[in-house]
Design a protein around this nucleic acid. Structure first.
Length: 773
DNA sequence: GAGTTTGAAACT
DNA sequence: CAGTTTCAAACTC
């Protein structure tokens, strides 16, 4: 779009735009105007819950379209029109991949501009490959994008193509359908669904992400390879699903994988929930491969209960809910940033109002604000989620507020890099936010970044689709676990005491709060309060549990402590860190040096570093003593860590979102140190895989996984600079022209290149990429 | 469901 | 920065 985003994207985009190829393409695609429309709608959709799918964010839509379009383009010229601009890119490599690309249009325009990407291009046509790459990214984003409303399809093809009745979907739909029919093969390839998926249903999310990846491959060879990989991944996913099914939570042990959705797609309400990471599962996944992309697990029961609830298992247990928040933030940001936002935001707000809980609306005013909003809640949520995680599954199913975004998938990847949080923890809060009646609300603003958008979109879509879900959720949630509900009586839900507020979500019906100001109606108040709190402590809304570098998955309880830690550490004196009073325990992480707890017996890891569970008995007393001892000695260390921790700490969503804007770190505050060890890789992954803004993704991932450390500002910046996914997203934005952000896609920006490479590296699981190379 | 315990958040 | 108060979740009965 013309939006600032582009500007951000950088010259590269402009180059592309300027490039004759672009012009040519644009001229070719009649769709553009439509896109613009979509875009606006999309934003709206973000803000508006009602016609979720329809309003998918422009970006998303575009992306979707692009995907579908691509095919269409290839397949049908007319259809391609629909895709239009995007369509240019559209030529999806995947499918027909090569064939499609063969399409004159794309090739024509694109080829010229394309920069050889290193990727997978085993293919002779580097140009195409590049091109493809871009597309895929866009697609990915798209997938993640709101456009994603698409209800999960029972059928692979359907998944891709069919969307819920929503109007937005419609566009995609048509195109997609066409594609699907025509390009089923391609779709299959994307989904890999094919035969493999037992359920036949594929995880749309995974599919999306995968598809995106697939798209990347222009060459047939790549495509095939990719498919192979995908299949493998599917297998893994299946295993994963099985594991998931085993999980008690998933009552549905049937666990069928996948997909999302409910056929009821008509209901449009699809809530995707992320399944909290579970150790057992993790192991499998780990073993199998990191690659396990996102899998949505639908318990059969769940299906019955919920129309559309999905459990999206993100790659590494990343939580999508977080993402949602992020997305919401992103949305907000977008709204703020984007011209689009204006209407959308208002709409979104309205939604919020309508919905009980929503993500807190970020102020649109500044980027900073935007940034802020997003990040904040997550962390807390994460913690909360941990608590609720188990419940979450069910809840999610029911409520469906949460959405797993494709983007999230990307995030997942990122997370994967980081590793799953030991605990399944998914931020319940985030969920909540999602759960909140109007997921859409959360979305508020159109995301500037396509990635964000996508995420939002997804949420939105789901949300939008699922006002019902929300309600549903609420119900289930109400059951107990549901996402957090607060019971504030004196704080007016404007303090961190309030879980909802802390999580960055509005209070909703299930809440038993009194005199609650944490509602859309009081948005201003909420925002102001947040600012105040942040001014006091920039990390106030940051995730409490940070995943340190490579924490080993839950598998090693011992390791756990190291892997994930509570940012500030607990201060337990009587609970011995064995109850939820302890934030560390609650977060499923071991206590660390930074903890000032007494008699630490944290099952996840003692402050001492002693083995978690077992040793505890012995040392209880010791622990206390040692604890003190350690304290003294450690304090020094702790402080250091604390300071550092931030670095290690997952960047708050804010950061992520805000990177541009320097947060005002309160004197106290530790300036957020953004960078985390793992971060980089994650960001890379993220960026590489999915256009979605790395930031968001990260944040999501982080959120999803409380444990994960998120790369903060640095990563995003890097990405940005390089053509961070975000930029890409932006480029992809509504205009669609940008879809392939030149920067992103094209090797022109090292970042992109790196991005892909990163992806490959980071995500071992995606074999597809590597093979080609 | 009411009451108690607990520790974070907020305040001084 | 430390101490105290406030608060709401977690927990118990």
């Amino acid at each position: 779009m013309d939006t600032p985003e582009r500007n951000q994207i950088g010259t590269s985009i402009s180059k592309f735009e300027d490039s004759p190829v672009f012009n040519y393409i644009n001229s070719l695609s009649p769709i553009k105007p439509v896109k613009s429309v979509h875009i606006t709608q999309t934003f709206n959709t973000l803000s508006f819950p009602s016609p979720p799918s329809v309003f998918t964010s422009p970006h998303v839509n575009a992306h979707r379209e692009s995907r579908f379009v691509r095919r269409h383009n290839h397949l049908d010229a007319s259809k391609t029109k629909v895709v239009s601009e995007d369509g240019n890119k559209i030529s999806s490599s995947e499918e027909d991949s090569t064939h499609a690309y063969s399409n004159s249009e794309e090739k024509q325009g694109n080829s010229d501009e394309r920069i050889s990407v290193g990727d997978a291009s085993s293919d002779p046509s580097n140009e195409q490959a590049q091109f493809i790459i871009e597309l895929p990214q866009t697609l990915k984003y798209d997938c993640g994008s709101p456009s994603y409303d698409h209800p999960p399809c029972s059928n692979e093809t359907s998944c891709l193509v069919e969307l819920p009745g929503t109007s937005e979907v419609v566009n995609v739909h048509e195109t997609s359908k066409i594609d699907s029919t025509e390009d089923e093969a391609s779709l299959e390839g994307m989904c890999q669904i094919g035969p493999k998926t037992e359920g036949t249903e594929c995880d749309w999310v995974s599919l999306m992400s995968d598809a995106a990846d697939l798209l990347i491959f222009n060459s047939p060879n790549e495509t095939e390879a990719f498919r192979g990989v995908m299949q493998k991944s599917l297998d893994h996913t299946v295993q994963f699903c099985n594991a998931m099914s085993q999980l008690p939570e998933t009552s549905t042990n049937n666990g069928r994988r996948v997909h999302i959705v409910n056929p009821d797609a008509s209901s449009s309400d699809h809530d995707i929930e992320e399944i909290p990471y579970q150790p057992g599962i993790d192991k499998e996944t780990d073993q199998t491969g990191e690659n396990l992309a996102n899998v949505a697990v639908m318990p059969s029961n769940m299906n019955d209960k919920m129309d559309n609830e999905l459990l999206c298992v993100t790659y590494r247990g990343l939580r999508r809910r977080c993402l949602d928040f992020e997305m919401a933030a992103a949305r907000r940001k977008n709204s703020d940033d984007g011209s689009n936002t204006g209407s959308s935001t208002s709409q979104s707000e309205e939604r919020y109002a309508a919905n009980n809980k929503q993500l807190l609306p970020t102020k649109r005013s500044g980027d900073s604000q935007r940034c802020i909003l997003p990040g904040i809640g997550f962390h807390l949520n994460a913690l909360a989620t941990l608590k609720d995680c188990k419940s979450v599954k069910t809840e999610n199913l029911s409520s469906g507020r949460r959405f797993s975004l494709p983007s999230s998938a990307s995030s997942l990847q990122l997370s994967t890099g980081q590793e799953r949080p030991p605990l399944s923890s998914i931020s319940a809060c985030a969920e909540r936010g999602l759960d909140a009646p109007d997921p859409n609300n959360g979305v508020l603003q159109p995301a500037e970044d396509s990635s964000e958008v996508s995420a939002y979109v997804v949420n939105d879509d789901f949300n939008q689709n699922s006002p019902k879900k929300k309600r549903r959720k609420l119900e289930p949630a109400a059951e107990g676990e549901s996402c957090k509900r607060c019971n504030c009586k004196k704080s007016k839900c404007l303090k961190l005491y309030c879980e909802c507020f802390a999580a960055g979500v509005y209070c909703i019906e299930p809440c038993s709060c009194q005199d609650c100001f944490n509602k859309p109606i009081h948005e201003d108040t909420v925002l102001a309060t947040r600012k105040q709190i942040e001014s006091r402590n920039p990390l106030a809304f940051a995730p409490k549990v940070i995943r340190t570098s490579d924490s080993v998955p839950e598998e090693d309880p011992n390791k756990t402590p190291a892997s994930a830690r509570h940012k500030r550490g607990c201060n337990c004196k009587k609970s011995n860190c064995l109850k939820k009073y302890c934030e560390c325990y609650q977060g499923g992480v071991g206590c660390s040096i930074s903890c000032r707890c007494e008699g630490c017996k944290n099952a996840y890891g003692r402050k001492d570093g002693s083995a978690p569970i077992e040793a505890e008995h012995e040392e209880e007393t010791e622990a206390t003593e040692k604890g003190e001892m350690e304290r003294a000695s450690q304090k020094t260390v702790t402080q250091n860590e604390e300071d550092h921790p931030d670095s290690a700490l997952p960047t708050t969503p804010l950061r992520l979102s805000r990177p541009l804007i320097p947060l005002p770190f309160s004197s106290k505050g530790k300036p957020p140190r953004s960078s985390f060890i793992t971060t980089i890789s994650a960001s890379r992954l993220y960026g590489s895989q999915k256009l979605g803004r790395p930031n968001i993704i990260r944040s999501q991932s982080n959120y999803e996984k409380p444990f994960q450390s998120v790369a903060d500002d640095e990563m995003p910046e890097v990405l940005r600079g390089d053509g961070s996914p975000i930029t890409c997203m932006k480029t992809s934005s509504p205009n669609g022209k940008r879809i392939s952000s030149p920067n992103c896609d094209i090797g022109s920006s090292p970042a992109r290149r790196s991005g892909r490479k990163l992806i490959l590296q980071s995500i071992p699981s995606f074999p597809s990429l590597t093979p080609h190379h």
